[in-house]
Every structure is written in C-alpha cells, then in structure tokens.
Amino acid sequence: MLKVENIDVYYGKVQALYDVCFEVGENEIVSIIGSNGAGKSTLMKTIMGVNKPAKGTIEFNGEQIGSVKTNLIVGKRLVYIPEGREVFPKMSVKDNLVMGAYSRKYSSAEMNRKLEEMFEIYPRLKERQSQLAGSMSGGEQQMLAIARGLMSEPKMVMYDEPSLGLSPLIVDEMFETIVKVKQTMKIPVVIVEQNAFMAMSISDRTYILENGHMKGSGASKELMDSPEIKKAYLGG
C-alpha cells in the first residue's frame, strides 16, 4: 500500500532522515518506534507532503506522491492524524467531524451515515456532538481527532503519537479502538509511538528509527522478545 524508498530529508542544512526505507502492506498494522528526535514525525510529515524528500521515492496505492501537495494527498485518501489532539477547539464536535469529510463531496445523507458510523465507534462523541471540542477532556479530543480523520473513508491511516499526554487508562482504550477501527474498516494502519510497548503489542510489524536511520525491523512479537530491544525500549 505504502512504499517509502531511500529517502533523505533536510531541515535547511540539518539532515533529519538518512536513507530511510519502509513498507506497509494491505491490511496490517505497522508501528514505528523511536525516542525523541529520532525523526518519526519528520517521516510522517514527509509522507504527507509537508516536507519534501531530497532523495528517494514515496509510493502510495501505486502512485508516486513524493512531490504532491498535502491537500491532494489527503484527497488520495491517505489520512494522517497529527500528534497532540489537533482539533478545532471553538467548533462543535459535529462541525469538527464534518470538516474531516472536506476532501470528499458527500451528500447530506452520506454525511449523516458517516457521522453515525463514527458515533458507533466513539459513543462518547455522540453525547457531546453539540459541545465545543475544546471543552472536552484530552482523551475525548484525541478520539475526536481520530474520528475526524476517519470521516473521509481513508484507504490508510497514520497515527502520530496517539498516546501523547493521555492517562494510562485512556491509553489502553485508545489502542483498543485503533485495533477496532482497523478491523471494521479493513485498512492498513501506521502507528508512530514513543510508547513502544503499546505500539508493538498491537502491531504486526515494527520498525525502529534512531537518529534518522532505520535501525531495524521485524515481526513485533519477535522484536519484543529480543534482549536488545527489551533493554533499549521496553525498560529491561
């Protein structure tokens, strides 16, 4: 579905990614783990066309998207859920969701059906649909950000740090819904996380990013058993 090959990315003169390759197949959950500053968000932003790769290619659904503008990439139904609950705080929950369908030209019947679908996955949002998004708790806002991304019926979703700043209890719930969404929509999912344990425990495969280099990859189960990974990312 997504194929990133040998990309180099620079911020001005500073190189952030070195010869990074990674791949996502149909219907799988892939996690990318790494510490602060490893280049995880840079990689996401490059795929979404915010940063342009200096070298290498990005292919999504059989199309080259390395030099396509961000809004058009969303139009190709590759959806990115940004880190840090990027909702529209002074708009109602419902309006937030409607904004998510911007790239699709839904009729009002389709829009209502889509909204109902989201409310089914996140019943909390239904209760609060006329409330201002900014007045909800952090976890609810994160769910709203995810639901808004899903409104456009994506062919693939990428989550950037969905657990950022949430309480451990909510984090569990968050990951459960991510799996649930994947199962119902049958689309591949990429999760970028610092919370390596959570990300690896729900994903099929994992890539490890360190200082802008892809350090390794493999089936999540095997990686979780490897002593090296345990030491570096799972706290012993």
């Binding site: 979404m48 915010v50 961000t70 809004n71 058009l72 990439i73 969303v74 139009g75 959806v79 990115y80 859920i81 940004p82 990027e86 909702v87 529209f88 705080p89 002074k90 708009m91 904004m99 998510g100 911007y102 790239s103 950000a145 808004r148 991304g149 456009s152």
Partner: peptide, 11 residues
C-alpha cells in the same frame, strides 16, 4: 481554530 488540522483534513 487550528491551522495545522485544517491541512490534515486536506484543505
């Protein structure tokens, strides 16, 4: 409300 989120929904 949120410049970046608008871009994220494809505007």
């Amino acid at each position: 409300d949120n410049y970046e989120a608008v871009q994220a929904v494809g505007v």
